[in-house]
């Protein structure tokens, strides 16, 4: 086998892919959130619609979005490979196991938390990403700009349904727990650990894990309440 594929198929190679794709997805979340915050503006959705147009038509952003698709797919496939491999490594389970005394819950349940995030992603992409790219979205005209797709209207319609709002809040909670372990775990996997910096990474990770999902969840809650 070629040295590179040998590296990437080793246990540490698979972990490397998990960590790098996870970190890229963290960057993606940051960008996505900044865009979504436009929803909070009280301008009838103009800023948000312009942002949506920018995101689907700018070449650089397109490359970034393909990278994001690849990262999500790789992250999910490798999480499956690793989870199956790890289960096989202990064919007979313990009769009594007190894992809560030696490790935190999130670190032991990354697979479950990730699966909730994945289910959310499928529904979320179907409602907005698919509609924006392939659906028939009504257009709207703003002063100084031509006709642009009114994704804002689709978003508001979706967020007026209570089940959709609940789905968002629950999924963002799962993402928060996923990141509360994942953020610092990725640095450990990459071997980036140092007495001086690891405490900062851990605090920043916790802050990110709480703040970002909370702000994501705020959008549907805000729009739902506004349209009651």
């Amino acid at each position: 086998m070629n040295w590179l594929s040998q590296t990437l198929t080793s246990s540490l190679g698979k972990k490397l892919i998990m960590a790098l794709t996870g970190l890229f997805l963290i960057l993606f979340l940051t960008g996505h959130l900044l865009g979504n915050l436009q929803l909070l503006k009280d301008d009838g959705g103009q800023a948000f619609n312009e942002y949506a147009k920018f995101m689907t038509t700018t070449p650089v952003i397109k490359i970034l979005s393909y990278l994001t698709y690849i990262c999500i797919i790789l992250h999910v496939i490798y999480s499956l490979i690793l989870t199956i491999h790890n289960r096989k490594a202990r064919p007979i389970k313990y009769a009594v196991s007190r894992q809560s005394e030696n490790s935190v819950w999130t670190s032991r349940n990354m697979g479950i938390l990730g699966t909730i995030v994945l289910l959310f992603l499928v529904i979320h992409l179907r409602s907005f990403w698919y509609e924006m790219h392939y659906g028939s979205i009504p257009t709207i005209e703003y002063e100084g700009g031509g006709q642009i797709k009114n994704l804002y209207q689709i978003v508001v319609e979706a967020f007026s349904q209570l089940w959709y709002v609940i789905l968002y809040v629950v999924s963002m909670a799962a993402l928060a727990f996923h990141l509360s372990h994942g953020f610092q775990s990725a640095f450990q996997t990459l071997g980036l650990r140092h007495q001086k910096y690891t405490p900062i990474i851990k605090s920043a990770g916790l802050l990110f894990a709480i703040l970002v999902p909370a702000l994501f969840a705020l959008q549907p809650v805000y729009i739902y309440l506004k349209n009651l």
């Binding site: 246990s11 972990k15 690793l82 491999h85 894992q99 490790s103 670190s107 032991r108 775990s185």
Partner: peptide, 9 residues
């Protein structure tokens, strides 16, 4: 052996 998920157990 399995791989590490950094549970710290």
């Amino acid at each position: 052996f399995g791989t590490c998920t950094n549970t710290e157990a």
